[in-house]
Simulated assay, not measured.
Amino acid sequence: MRCPFCAHDDSQVKDSRPSDDGAAIRRRRQCAACGARFTTFERIQLRDLTVVKSGDRRQPFDREKLLRSVATACRKRPITPVQVERLVSGIQRQLETTGESETPSQRIGELVMEGLRGLDPVAYIRFASVYKDFREAKDFEDFAGNVGEAGRE
């Protein structure tokens, strides 16, 4: 593993343990050249996923991009980083186990919406505002009204 501080190619694993959500192995490493310590995470990847975006553009699935967008929706909400990590890991697992190598971006958005709906209504509305491209206050009002009505059923 390349050292992020000096770019030396050799580092030694000092400690390994499962991550908080159990979906990865957390490894503490030490660079053989500069002695700096850093952490890496190792995850299981069942297959390479490709996201089909609008206009039939294709790009590789980026777990970190998904994690950032979910974390942004959950910012300043009573949601722990472990909950966000579990949600993203669950979505990635669902996508990998479908047997398909290509997934429409709309499907990923729907899975995030499902997960956030059960996690936090404010994070759900925040994500929806970007995903559904709200243009004016009325869009928020209509959507939030539907969220409130669904919660009363």
Rank of each mutant, 00 (worst) to 15 (best):
R37Y: 10
R37G: 03
F38H: 00
F38V: 02
T39L: 02
F41V: 09
E42C: 11
I44F: 14
I44T: 14
I44M: 14
I44W: 13
I44S: 14
Q45N: 10
Q45A: 12
Q45F: 04
L46P: 06
R47D: 01
L49V: 02
T50A: 06
V51N: 04
V52Y: 10
K53L: 00
G55T: 05
G55A: 07
D56V: 09
D56Q: 12
R58S: 09
P60C: 04
D62G: 03
D62T: 05
E64P: 02
K65E: 13
L66T: 04
R68T: 14
S69Q: 11
V70N: 10
A71T: 05
C74R: 08
R75S: 10
R75Y: 13
R77A: 09
R77L: 07
I79L: 02
T80N: 03
T80C: 02
Q83E: 06
Q83A: 10
V84H: 00
R86M: 01
V88C: 01
S89P: 08
S89T: 15
S89W: 10
G90S: 05
I91F: 09
I91Y: 09
R93C: 11
R93V: 00
Q94D: 14
Q94T: 15
E96K: 01
T98E: 11
T98W: 08
G99K: 00
G99E: 01
E100C: 05
E100G: 08
E100M: 08
